[in-house]
Amino acid sequence: MEEQSTLIAYASDLEKASFYKKTYLHVALAILAFIVVETILMNVVPTEAILWMISGKFLWLFLIGLFWLGSILADRLTFHPSREQQYLGLGLYVLLEAIIFLPMITIAWIYSGGGDMILQAAGITMFMFVGLTAVVFITKADFSFLRTVLVIGGFVALGVIVMGAIFGWNLGLWFSTAMVILAVTSILYQTHQLRNDYHTGQYVGAALKLFASVMLLFWYILRILMSRRN
């Protein structure tokens, strides 16, 4: 069962420090697990099968739908009172991210003749994540208003992605840039939540939220780098 916890806004400095340490440790472990799973999938799944995942618009929409449903389940599990269920949810989400990323990571690997482009995207993502985290903790500004932006922006983005897949629209640089802005907004909001609205025992759920935002940012930074090679 979940240990006794306190709302982070009313926790002691020691409790806050422990919560932040556990949360960011779990984000780091989720990223490491993603790298491991992605590497295994790239070495086990044939390239033809990976490219087949995005060969048909309805197949890709089906995969996006499964990812969305799986994400909802994973999110609920990570806030379950049982710690085992929380780790199950985080592990499930890491697996889902590895699967949905598989085609793009493979194409980026082929384009750059190795992992140079992927490492560049990862470096930019981590640099931005650290900078945005510092902004929230140093300024202590109220970013709660960004929730409305995220809700509206998320629905608009999902609609554009679905319509783009159905009608074959080329969602180019402008869309990727807009999604980077949305990911930045998400990181600011989730970090603000981390400082104010979680309980000290909810570090696994908080880590999933941050990990999801980081992966969204990584996805579209990689897309932008790939578009520059075309």
Score class of each variant (00 low, 15 high):
V156I: 15
L132P: 01
G205W: 03
G153P: 05
G205C: 07
G164E: 00
V204I: 15
T125Q: 03
L222V: 04
T185V: 09
A178P: 05
V162E: 08
Y189K: 05
S186H: 09
A165I: 09
I138F: 15
M128H: 07
F143H: 07
L225H: 07
L171Q: 07
Y220I: 06
F167S: 09
K209C: 03
M215E: 12
L216G: 01
M226A: 11
W174I: 12
V135A: 11
S213N: 10
V184D: 07
V184H: 06
L210A: 06
R223F: 09
S186R: 12
V204T: 04
I166F: 11
V156D: 02
F137Y: 13
L182A: 00
N230H: 14
M226W: 09
T185L: 08
V135M: 10
R195H: 10
Y220E: 07
F129H: 13
M215D: 06
Q202V: 09
H199P: 05
A183R: 03
I181F: 11
V180P: 01
T185M: 11
Y189V: 05
G201L: 13
A212V: 11
R223W: 13
V180Q: 03
A212P: 01
L217I: 08
F155G: 00
T139K: 13
R223Y: 12
V136F: 01
Y198W: 07
W169K: 06
W219S: 05
N196L: 13
F167W: 15
T133D: 09
F211Q: 00
G164C: 08
S213R: 05
G164P: 04
K140Y: 09
V184G: 08
A157S: 10
L210G: 06
V162K: 06
G154Q: 00
L158M: 14
I138N: 10
L217Q: 04
L171I: 00
V151K: 06
A212T: 12
T125I: 03
M226R: 03
T133S: 14
G201Q: 11
V180W: 02
L182F: 08
D197K: 14
G205V: 01
Y189I: 02
N170P: 03
F175H: 01
M126D: 04
T125Y: 03
Y203D: 13
T177H: 03
Y198T: 02
S186C: 07
F145V: 12
L188C: 06
H192G: 13
L208Y: 08
G201Y: 07
I224F: 02
L217F: 10
F167V: 08
R229P: 01
R147T: 07
D142L: 09
Y198Q: 01
F127D: 09
R229M: 15
N196H: 15
A165K: 12
R223M: 14
G205L: 06
Y189W: 10
V151E: 08
Q193K: 14
A207N: 10
L182E: 06
W169E: 09
S227A: 15
T133P: 01
L216T: 12
Q190I: 11
W219T: 02
F211L: 03
I224W: 00
L216S: 11
T148W: 14
S176G: 05
S213T: 09
I138T: 09
T185C: 14
F145I: 13
M215Q: 11
N230W: 13
